[in-house]
Amino acid sequence: MIIEKFFNKWIMFFLILIPTFGVIFDEPYFITLATKVVILGIAGIGLNLALGYCGLISLGHAAFFGIGGYITGILSFHALNDEMLFSWPVVVSGSSEMLIIWPIAILVSALFSFIIGLLSLRTSGVYFIMITLAFAQMLYFFSISWPNYGGEDGLSIYMRNSFPMLNTMDPISFYIISLFWLLFSIFISLRLINSPFGMSFQAIKQNEERVKSVGIETFKVKLLVFVISGTITGLAGSLYTDLNRFVSPTVLDWHTSGEIMVFVILGGMARLYGPLVGAAFFIALEQTLGSYTENWQFWLGLILILVILYARSGILGLFDKKLKHEK
């Protein structure tokens, strides 16, 4: 644990220094890549709450990632085209302000997480996996068949949404914004897992029957974890759209759910920085192996098999020598 904490501090130190590297080596692409890692790390941190800490194997987190992404895309699209989003019963226009878009993306992701959680948490095990997958796929196919917002081709927003006193088109500025949300997500997760509520959902993962027997309403606990988890992933989706200035049905596809799950498993489930490390490893692999072969995912699969067989606590678990004695 001590080594892991030390390693975590180095990760944070490194993340804070990235803009400096970008400037020194004059590599804005490096900063963009780091921003991608940070945003996907946030998505993984969201899933980690449900999957790593509560044992909810969700294959539907692409839905929340995509909802956050599409909310950002749609609001921005309407603002750029100066079109109303709704004209009845009230007039609602689009927005290109991040400070307006984020709360809406967060609220809508939370609402969808609540609805999907309410229905899917009545099941467990493989049925839960399938029902969350089904919800995400429903949204995926809906987005494909929605021509107003680009259908299968997706939606370009040309310019990043704006943030007061920052040029969001500047890679360093946008990286700082994303890093703020990463730190915020880590802070929220840390507070949650050390709270009485966190104790409840971590106990549910280990022995739900026992938790019920001490009078804790496990359904409500799981639902709230699922909503918080989905909301954080939705926020990541919103940032991802701004990063790429584009959103397409791909973000809602089950591959996205699978990738977010891979970040969590690679980095280490139920480890605060695990998804961030997993996302960094994934992107590094994509960039390095991807330049040699189109089939880089074959090697990713191989690594994933090795992690599952020999390092179940993920990459961060390798730095945790006191795992057995840790809560």
Partner: peptide, 21 residues
């Protein structure tokens, strides 16, 4: 921690989200 878990419901602490246990 096992015992604390068992105390949570009675002390209405289960849904304390941000208070350190």
């Amino acid at each position: 921690d096992n015992i604390i878990l068992s105390l949570l419901d009675k002390s209405k602490e289960t849904f304390q989200l941000f208070k350190s246990i």
